[in-house]
């Protein structure tokens, strides 16, 4: 077990592993995503209260779940990078940040598009959307700090500290926003909620959530392969690899 861990923690072998897994995962992700789209957009019945508008949920809710999960993965990889100084963990940690930020931005965009027909306005300072906005700031902070430190390894460990502080803070921030929201309830009370938890709607939602997780792994592998190539571009093993491909 330890041997296998050591083997794949070395960058050249992990690079090759990324390539092999990516070649398998990419078609699987695309096919399952297409199936999820058909299920969510066509097969699932319209909601009796929100009509067809609720279909935005199939992209909004998995994306929102991912925005939090990716932050957790980022902080966990950051903790490993800080304690054991594993270079691979540093790469996983920092490659998570742009993906998580894009999930967060997607959640905000689809939430606003869902809010317009449900609330009558694109933005009403709903508790969950506001938390999501602050989460976006947290991601941007990690990305900006990483960009500001010239030494890549030091930068990754600095953002790891920030991400761990963020993980401790996220529940407090989320709770405080809910507290604020219940005290200053706006004029509209309709919430962006999974409508009735009916199985014909819940099933495609959970399916989409699984597809999003698979998608995240696929993207992370692609990003890791790219960043290992970037860091090792002057090394002989990578040049051999590149010459072998050409």
């Amino acid at each position: 077990m330890l041997d296998a861990t050591k083997r794949y923690a070395s960058l050249p072998s992990f690079y090759r592993l990324c390539g092999r897994l990516f070649a398998w995962l990419l078609p699987a992700t695309v096919a399952l995503f297409a199936a999820g789209l058909v299920w969510g957009l066509y097969l699932a019945p319209a909601d009796y209260k929100q009509g067809e508008a609720y279909r935005i949920m199939f992209i909004h809710v998995p994306s929102a779940w991912m925005s939090l999960l990716v932050y957790m993965v980022m902080a966990a990889a950051g903790a490993v990078a800080l304690v054991w100084r594993v270079k691979l963990a540093e790469l996983i940690h920092i490659e998570c940040a742009p993906v998580g930020a894009s999930f967060t931005a997607l959640t905000l965009a689809t939430g606003m598009l869902w809010g317009k027909p449900m609330w009558g306005a694109f933005w009403v300072w709903d508790a969950r959307l506001t938390s999501e906005l602050i989460l976006l700031f947290l991601y941007l902070g990690v990305i900006a700090l990483y960009a500001a430190i010239p030494d890549r390894r030091k930068a990754a460990r600095a953002t790891a500290v920030l991400a761990i502080v963020g993980v401790v803070n996220i529940p407090v921030i989320h709770y405080s926003v809910i507290w604020w929201n219940t005290l200053h309830q706006g004029p509209t009370v309709t919430r962006l909620d999974a409508p009735a938890a009916h199985i014909s709607i819940l099933a495609p939602l959970l399916f989409m959530a699984v597809v999003f997780k698979l998608y995240f792994i696929t993207v992370l592998l692609a990003r890791l392969r790219g960043s290992i190539a970037e860091q090792c571009r002057a090394q002989q093993w990578f040049r051999d690899e590149a010459a072998g491909r050409a």
């Binding site: 789209l37 957009l41 319209a46 009509g51 067809e52 508008a53 279909r55 935005i56 992209i59 909004h60 965009a109 689809t110 598009l113 869902w114 317009k116 027909p117």
Partner: peptide, 12 residues
């Protein structure tokens, strides 16, 4: 999309 086309399709 039951009149919600301008919200559902841009989202996707």
């Amino acid at each position: 999309m039951g009149g919600y086309a301008w919200f559902v399709w841009p989202s996707y």
